Computed example of a mutant assay.
Amino acid sequence: MSTFPGTAEFYRQFRPGLPGALPTLLDQIAPAASPRRLLDIGTGPGLVVEALLERFDDIVALDSDASMVAVAESALRTPLPHGSRLQLHHGRAEEFTPSAGWQPHLVTFCRVFHWLDQSAVLARLGEYVAPEGVVAVFSDRSLWTAGNPWQRAVRDVVQDFLGTQRRAGNRTFESPGPPHTQVLRDSPFSEVTETVIPVRRTWSADDVIGYLYSTSFAAPYLFGGRRANFEAAVKTVLAHFTTNGVLLENNAFTVLTAHRPSRHGKR
């Protein structure tokens, strides 16, 4: 069963997109090529692909959740630039093999790397990523781990309704293993650079609820018939933190970019 059942539309509408500096960074670190190929693993509803459509002209996007793939398909086909190629695949990253001769120049993992068998996926990528290709792993802090006072208060509400253990769909979230930096250094892509991009956002109470419903730890179905009560409780607690109905958040994207040791500069 998917870890994110019933969340795809909420994910598309309420998950924050990428900060403006991130697509520029990814464009700069990926080698130039024609066609320039992007593989987005765990694409969800296609937020990364959407941000990079103008910078890559041969794109493969992969997700293990069929509903996410369907939402991405609907969202991305219309803005696809003329002459660009987009393929969407439903499947597991650990099992994915591209068509013969297809070598991505950039592989992206946005908010998904912790869900994967990381070493297995990286070893597989080592077999087909372009020689000077780059792997990029990036994420911001989720509401569960963020430190803003209003976010901690909302997490308390989630725990009141669903228990103190963080959920991951119908199971309990398992703590991640070694730091992602170490996992990458132990992979074929062992030259790793870390960049932190600060983010400042504004939210409404409805935005927060929509975001919660996009997560594995507060997916709509987990509340059963108590959804209305949950939403009322979230709005009540957030009322103590809003100014003119607005909530402020300070967050950051941590971006790990990795390549093979033999890579010397950008072509």
Rank of each mutant, 00 (worst) to 15 (best):
G147N: 04
A72C: 12
V60F: 05
D156T: 03
L26A: 12
L52V: 08
L256Y: 13
P178H: 09
R167Q: 14
F10T: 06
L62P: 00
T243C: 11
H89C: 06
N251E: 11
T164R: 11
P220I: 01
D63C: 03
D160P: 13
E95P: 03
L238M: 09
L162A: 14
D58F: 10
Y128M: 01
V199H: 06
F10C: 10
A123I: 00
R260V: 11
L184Y: 12
H264I: 11
H89V: 12
V158Y: 13
V237H: 08
G101A: 02
H105F: 04
D156W: 06
T236Y: 10
P198F: 00
R92F: 05
F56S: 04
G133M: 09
F138W: 10
A70M: 11
Y213C: 14
G6W: 05
L184W: 03
D206N: 14
N250W: 03
V60W: 04
Q118H: 00
E73N: 12
V196G: 01
N229A: 15
V49N: 10
P131W: 03
L125W: 02
S119L: 02
E54F: 02
L88E: 09
R226D: 03
G163R: 07
A218N: 08
D186E: 15
L18I: 02
V157P: 01
T145K: 06
E191N: 04
V49D: 01
E73C: 10
T43C: 15
E54Q: 13
F253G: 11
